[in-house]
Amino acid sequence: MKTVLQQLVNYACYHRDPRNIRTHFVGIPMIVLAVAGLLARPALAGVSLAHVAVVLLVLYYLWLSRGAYRGLGLCMALCMLLALWGGLRLAALPQAAWLGWSLGLFVLGWLFQFVGHLYEGRKPAFVDDLMGLVIGPLFVVAEWLFLLGALGGMQRQIDAQAGPVRRRAHGPLPH
């Protein structure tokens, strides 16, 4: 099983253009919220698939981030609980509104993702490794923490192994 650093390095190799990272700051939270909303309905005895998925993801993120990076795991737990809360709010809407908002967020989130990968000039990470679908939210939270000046040692290790984030735009979108 890969460590949190190995998972993030692998994911980062597909995300070195800052424009791509910025689209992920928008797209991935939209997708996570949409999936939470879609899985929050129906519920059996007050427990939905969203509850189960979030508990499993939180346990995975906490396990993956144990040791020196436990703060990252705790941040992920908070973010996933917020996504669950938002998903439950979506699920409480009338059926047409729930489905419209959830599917709309899902599609729009993926559009952001694919535009980012046009900038990157590289396919999304999950195409080569389905774990990318689980690591994407972790990557976004880690990148936010890097911007806030946290986890500098982790950021340096990722940059050393995946290459630094390209700081300058490289012209128009590739064809």
Rank of each mutant, 00 (worst) to 15 (best):
V54Q: 04
V47T: 06
F112C: 09
G27Y: 00
I31A: 11
R19I: 03
A142K: 05
A77D: 01
L133S: 06
C13Y: 06
V58R: 07
A142M: 10
M1K: 14
F139H: 06
F146M: 01
Q155C: 11
A142V: 01
G132N: 07
Q161M: 09
P124N: 09
A169P: 10
R16G: 09
V54K: 02
F126L: 06
A169Y: 08
D128K: 14
M76Q: 09
A162T: 04
P42H: 09
F106P: 10
L59R: 12
G46C: 08
F114H: 11
H175A: 15
G153S: 04
E143R: 15
A150C: 13
V127W: 06
E143V: 13
G37A: 10
R19E: 05
T3V: 08
V55D: 02
W101I: 12
V107N: 05
P124V: 08
A125K: 11
V9M: 11
L108E: 05
Q155N: 12
A150I: 05
R19H: 13
P124W: 02
G163Y: 02
Q113H: 00
A96M: 15
L130D: 04
I28V: 14
P94C: 14
I135G: 03
Y69G: 03
G136T: 00
L173W: 02
W85V: 10
A68F: 01
I158T: 03
A50R: 08
W110N: 14
A45H: 11
L99D: 01
L8V: 03
Q6S: 13
N10D: 13
W144M: 15
N20L: 05
G67H: 02
T3Y: 07
L133F: 01
L44A: 12
G121M: 03
Q95G: 14
H117T: 03
V134D: 06
L111Y: 10
A45V: 07
Q7E: 15
L64S: 03
T23L: 10
Y61L: 05
W110L: 09
W101C: 12
V55Q: 07
G171P: 04
D17P: 08
M30T: 02
R70D: 02
L62I: 08
A169K: 15
Q7S: 15
L49Y: 01
M80D: 11
P94I: 11
D128L: 15
L81S: 08
D159K: 13
L49P: 02
K123V: 12
P42D: 00
H15F: 07
G71T: 09
G27Q: 10
V52R: 13
A68Q: 14
W98P: 08
R167Y: 08
D17E: 08
L78Y: 01
L88G: 07
V140H: 06
V127A: 13
I31P: 11
R70S: 14
G27F: 03
G121I: 00
G153F: 05
L74E: 09
Q113P: 07
L82R: 08
Y69C: 03
D159C: 10
G152C: 03
A96H: 13
A50F: 00
V165T: 11
L108F: 02
G149L: 03
H175M: 15
A150S: 09
